[in-house]
Amino acid sequence: MKVSPSLLPILRSRMQGELLALVLLHPEREYSITELAADVGVTPTAVLREVDRLADGGILTDRRVGRSRLVKARTDTPLYRPLSELMSVSFGPVPVLTDALAGLEGVERAYIYGSWAARYNGEPGPPPADVDVLVVGDPDADALFDLAEEASRRLRREVNVHRVSVEAWEARTDDPFLTGVRERPLVQLNLDLEAQ
């Protein structure tokens, strides 16, 4: 049984929200169907069906290059701005924070936790007022503060970043904060740290 996502119940699925957020929040970029499937974590066939619907509805545009189909947000329609803003405040934390943290030196892993992660994982409740992020590693504190400020602006809600060392995260001690974070839903950000 498909359940509509708690972050934005007007959508059919979480995959639809993830796909829309990824493409609409990166309007300058073209994605192949294979890239979208890998980023969203579903089969290319599932992405293809969704892309067909969204292209037919004028939300996405596509073109063929050889055997590849490249997909991009249509920014020339009245739907683009309000829909991209809606995706930013609902499903935006994953692509926005992934982009921001992937390039930050000292970040080993990052997770979204708290009410946003709970809604993302299907727990019902009111829309999250903020986004809580746990950064594992030793990035510069000032850089993390600046990153949180920029992400807050883009997501139109407060972004709270908490930094812990790799040792503290892996120790599984009785730290009440880390115990609480581990016991609740987590959304791990897929950071490409090989480039660092």
Rank of each mutant, 00 (worst) to 15 (best):
V136N: 00
D192Q: 03
V3F: 10
R119S: 06
V42M: 01
A46K: 07
P5W: 09
I10H: 13
R29C: 10
P95D: 06
T43V: 10
Q196F: 02
T34G: 14
A38H: 12
E18K: 12
R67W: 05
T34K: 15
T98A: 00
P5E: 09
R172A: 14
L48E: 14
P44M: 04
S68C: 00
H162P: 00
A55G: 00
P78R: 03
V94T: 12
L25S: 10
D130T: 11
L104S: 05
V131N: 00
A37Q: 10
T43L: 12
M87F: 08
S90Q: 00
R156F: 08
E167C: 04
F145G: 02
R172S: 11
L97Q: 04
L22V: 06
L186C: 08
Y31E: 09
G66Q: 08
P139L: 08
L36N: 04
Y113C: 01
R172H: 15
I112H: 03
D192R: 05
R49D: 14
E28C: 07
V107R: 01
D39H: 06
L83S: 02
Y80S: 01
L24D: 05
P9C: 11
E18M: 13
R12A: 13
E170F: 02
D76E: 13
Y113H: 08
D142R: 08
G114M: 09
W116S: 05
E108T: 14
P124M: 11
